[in-house]
Design a protein around this nucleic acid. Structure first.
Lengths: 156, 156
DNA sequence: CAGAAACTGTACTGTTTTAGTCCTGTTTGT
DNA sequence: ACAAACAGGACTAAAACAGTACAGTTTCTG
């Protein structure tokens, strides 16, 4: 049924929590406020930092924050950060792996139409649209509030 | 990585094979010409018949054919036939199942934006677009040829 | 400079899902 | 009556995933 894995699901919960703050947040802090177990939160944050969505600071008072303005982050990026390239089958160019019949396979390359279509639709859903308050707020207000929080977190 | 399962992958191979014929095809016949193992082909065809994409005829000279004009079948239908409703997480209305925190879950319902976006994009990719010859043929010619084959299969 | 807070990377294990197979039953044409 | 075909369900082996744990590195604070 075309599922994303649970880690990705949790990631959105944690990221939304992070969107609500205006400073760096430690993994332990986010675990407490989101209800997701610490080791899991930790795994997610590390991965998101590795792929450039978040940035991390070590040491006392360290933690995680967005590496760039959160309003510009799409769900496609979040999903790809945690699951790798969007590819509905193994038989696509980007995914490296290929079945043993690639060269004679009549389907070769055709699922790409599907991949591209999905990828495009996910590019158009922004992470901040996943925030519960997104449905009650004016989109411009939302974008501004998020940008202000991000600026505050960056200078702190 | 947002994969469809292998059965769905094979299903497209088998369906494309079926698109090339102008008569009912038995499971054994399709297995031979597509290279997919018979028990697997059989499983796929049964499921596709159950969900109304194909129709079956029993007995000697029986087999499978499209239940309606193939040009009208979308990839969304094929995927849903084999995997159930398109739902990237368990926490969505259509999927019945829900995590234990549904009522307090701040994400509840938000993945729906993603589901709807994906579903819409898959509605716009037609099964016949997956045919290898689709890229070399004029779309109208393709549609007509497919319709003629289907008509022939239905009256036979 | 010592210790605590926080991130980093990797490895392991139990559970769940998936893939693939097989068997028994029913329908239909010759 | 027999053989060709579909129908439905049950079972097993393999792969993927979720969750956890641990050993290491960096940085702030007193």
């Amino acid at each position: 049924m075309l599922k994303v894995n649970k880690l990705t699901d949790y990631a959105v919960v944690v990221l939304c929590d992070l969107l609500r703050g205006d400073r760096l947040r430690s993994a332990a802090d986010l675990a407490t406020s989101s209800g997701v177990p610490l080791p899991t939160v930790s795994k997610i944050l590390k991965q998101l930092a590795r792929t450039g969505i978040l940035q991390s600071a070590r040491g006392v008072n360290g933690g995680y924050g967005f590496a760039r303005p959160p309003a510009g982050i799409s769900m496609a990026e979040v999903i790809e950060a945690l699951e790798g390239p969007i590819a509905v089958t193994g038989c696509v160019e980007e995914s490296g792996e290929c079945c043993e019949f690639v060269h004679q396979c009549p389907m070769s390359g055709h699922w790409n139409a599907v991949n591209v279509a999905i990828r495009k639709s996910l590019d158009e859903v922004r992470l901040i649209d996943m925030l519960p308050e997104a449905r009650f707020m004016d989109p411009e207000d939302l974008t501004r509030v998020i940008a202000e929080r991000h600026a505050a977190a960056m200078q702190a």
